[in-house]
């Protein structure tokens, strides 16, 4: 019995808790991708760099606040800086839309053309971020490091294995729940949210009923800015901020959005967790879990790791391919179908 509990704690410590936090970050990223796809009808390659930009503004504000001696006590100061980051990113995205995307929207170009345009935007944003903050790792997490540390947990429960939950992991999940709840409330209950869904379902009908498309687009970009910034900041708090890793997040984020069904917000969230749990689960060495569960004679010699951690891209990708082949519209109905 104790062995089973120990196994469960090891599993929770190394797989469940990190995967839940990572899944929440991916889900927020995928929500942004999916919103752009549903309303603006293109795949935004620049999304990873949007997340990096939002995180960067938040980091600068955090440093400013820290310099001024303002903090949130046990919570990271970055939470206080988030609104500034969101506002900055929203300005950038609206500016990009005004200068670049609006021209192509008016011409009703093919989605793949917008995709290529977003490659240009990606280059510019990537260059901007690297130019302003540099290419190095930046740490900006402060406050209490752990909600519960491995040692406290062991003392508390008397088990051999410890379960550590970092503050950033807790904050990630709580923030993600609040953000998702607010987003769904907005989309389902408010007039603006309904007009957005109408626009997504059938553009012509929405226009006929007097919905102002430019307003819908503006609000979409603001929502995307908020989602991307929050996802970027949470990821940065949990791991660390480095422009290049944000670019690489593009793949799991897209995999999450596509697995869930592009354009479907519920799907994006489910997709985020599917990708996160598979990535962490497939690359985790289950040796220690099995040691607790199996009798000594059956204990494994190897690490019982399906794939090395460096192959985590392969996991996102494999899931992506399987879903695309067997269920091209994603787990949930995609608006693309």
């Amino acid at each position: 019995m104790i062995d089973a509990l120990n196994a469960l704690v090891v599993l929770a410590n190394f797989v469940i808790v990190p995967a839940v936090a990572y899944g929440a970050q991916l889900a927020l990223g995928a929500l942004g991708v999916t919103l752009i796809f549903a309303i603006l009808r293109f795949t935004n390659i620049a999304h990873g760099d949007t997340m990096a930009f939002g995180a960067m503004i938040t980091i600068f504000t955090t440093w400013g606040l820290q310099g001024a001696g303002i903090s949130l006590g046990p919570l990271p100061t970055a939470l206080l800086a988030l609104p500034v980051g969101i506002a900055g990113t929203a300005l950038l995205l609206l500016g990009t839309d005004r200068l670049i995307y609006r021209f192509y929207r008016a011409k009703k170009v093919a989605p793949v053309m917008l995709l290529i345009v977003s490659v240009g935007v990606m280059f510019v944003m990537n260059g901007l971020v690297r130019f302003i903050i540099g290419v190095d790792d930046q740490r900006f997490a402060d406050g209490e490091r752990f909600i519960i540390s491995a040692r406290t947990f062991r003392d508390l429960t008397g088990l051999d294995e410890g379960l550590a939950i970092r503050t950033t992991q807790g904050i990630t999940v709580v923030t993600a729940v609040i953000v998702v709840a607010a987003l769904f409330w907005f989309l389902d209950r408010t007039r603006t949210g309904k007009s957005m869904r109408a626009y997504s379902d059938n553009e012509d009908l929405a226009l006929l009923s007097g919905i102002n498309p430019e307003r819908v687009v503006t609000i979409t970009w603001i929502l995307v800015a908020a989602l991307a910034t929050i996802a970027g900041v949470l990821y940065g708090l949990d791991k660390s901020f480095k422009p290049f890793t944000y670019f690489q997040l593009l793949l799991p984020v897209f995999a999450a959005a596509i697995v869930g069904g592009l354009g479907n917000p519920v799907g994006a969230i489910v997709g985020g967790f599917v990708i996160a749990f598979s990535e962490v689960g497939v690359t985790y060495a289950f040796k220690r879990v099995l040691e607790y569960l199996l009798p000594e004679a059956l204990e494994p010699d190897g690490l019982v790791q399906l794939l090395g951690t460096d192959y985590k891209f392969a996991v996102s990708f494999a899931i992506l391919v399987v879903v695309l082949i067997f269920r091209p519209t994603g787990l949930y109905r995609s608006t693309a179908a």
Partner: peptide, 19 residues
């Protein structure tokens, strides 16, 4: 696959090759 799906799929494959 649709153009944007093919894009993501090929992006993924290239990362796997490098890995």
């Amino acid at each position: 696959l649709r153009a944007d799906y093919l894009a993501i799929a090929t992006l993924g494959i290239s990362e796997i090759v490098i890995a």
